[in-house]
Amino acid sequence: MKNISLGQYYPTGSVIHRLDGRVKIILAVIHIIATFLCESLASFACLFVGTLVLVLMTRIPLGVVLRSVRAIVYILIITFILNAFFTVGEGEPLFSVWIFTLYIEGIWNAAFMALRILSLILGTSIFISYTTTPIQLTDSIESLLSPLKKLKLPVHDFAMMMSIALRFIPTISDETDRIMTAQKARGADFTTGSLIKRAKALIPVLVPLFVSAFRRADELATAMECRCYHGGEGRTKMTVPHLCARDIAAVGLMLAFGAALVLLNRVDFLYKMV
């Protein structure tokens, strides 16, 4: 059987891994807001150092973390260039060629924007993708959204769908492999030819895949019914997540970190975004 890891979860058992899933979502949100509140060099420096400390705390090898950064390198470069040339500064431009004029403020702004994006990616990686299992994530989202149940929004059903999807990804992917092998044995060719030809070659894979997925859905529904599934009403949970001291402390620290960043905006050293 193929070894598929769902998402990028990277177990190390660190303090951050052990935090409650809901708390991690809240921490990620605070981190995002804090990132956008940063304006001065001092607060950006502090944000950068703080985020780096968090990365180290997850005990995930830096190489793995950098992989998620590598995916956005182009976005970073484009943001940097656009910001650098589109900022109009007050003093003399550094140089000016044709329509491109570069001010010193442009470089600062560009660097800050790139830092913001970097910090957004690192923040969600630290708190969500690398340290929270997909199932913990869906459970946490259900729990956080549960007040919406009062508005008759189908929060439970949505979470259930998500977790069934997660459960069946490996199963269906195995099946895709099997069907592709079977079609290859009948002479199908998925690797050569034009894009359209290759897309066409996938049709004989998709059709049986869909048929089988629907049959699975039917069987699964019967099995769930036989196991007394009747929606979210009156349902209990085996593991009721409890917030412990660690979780409360983490939220407190993160809020303090955000507040510190805002205060550091007052320090007018070298440059401040406008």
């Binding site: 199932i135 977790s163 699975r216 069987e219 699964l220 769930m224 196991r227």
Partner: peptide
């Protein structure tokens, strides 16, 4: 039922 894959609901 017959197919064990189609009756397990959770990921753990």
């Amino acid at each position: 039922f017959q197919n064990p894959d189609n009756q397990l609901v959770a990921t753990i």
